[in-house]
């Protein structure tokens, strides 16, 4: 019951993050939205694995946590190396 509620809240937050990712306005909002989306996916999968009773899913949640971090670092480095030439909009 509580688990189902948590899943619904997580889905709601994912929708909000996606709205912000579509709206922007600048590229960092989108990166932040993608990052938020990623951590919520980690939680969603962890919660779903308890809700459906298959703890194998936790490995995937762990991979997501890793991947999410690496993507954010990637975006940071690339924007930083490019921003001498271009503005922050996109």
């Amino acid at each position: 019951m509580i688990l189902a509620l948590t899943v619904i809240v997580l889905l709601l937050v994912m929708v909000v993050a996606l709205l912000r990712a579509f709206a922007g306005p600048n590229v960092f909002d989108r990166v932040l939205a993608a990052n938020l989306f990623g951590t919520k996916t980690v939680l969603l999968i962890a919660t779903i694995s308890y809700l459906f009773g298959s703890p194998d899913f936790l490995d995937i949640a762990l991979v997501y946590a890793l991947i999410n971090y690496i993507s954010v670092i990637g975006v940071l480095r690339i924007t930083e190396l490019r921003n001498e030439q271009q503005g922050a909009d996109g």
């Binding site: 951590t39 762990l62 946590a65 954010v72």
Partner: peptide, 21 residues
């Protein structure tokens, strides 16, 4: 992992945004 990476990612984003103007 999240306790390590989440604040670091926030820091990285804020820094990147500031440096980009």
């Amino acid at each position: 992992f999240v306790l390590f990476s989440s604040p670091t990612a926030s820091h990285a984003l804020a820094k990147a945004a500031w440096n980009a103007g």
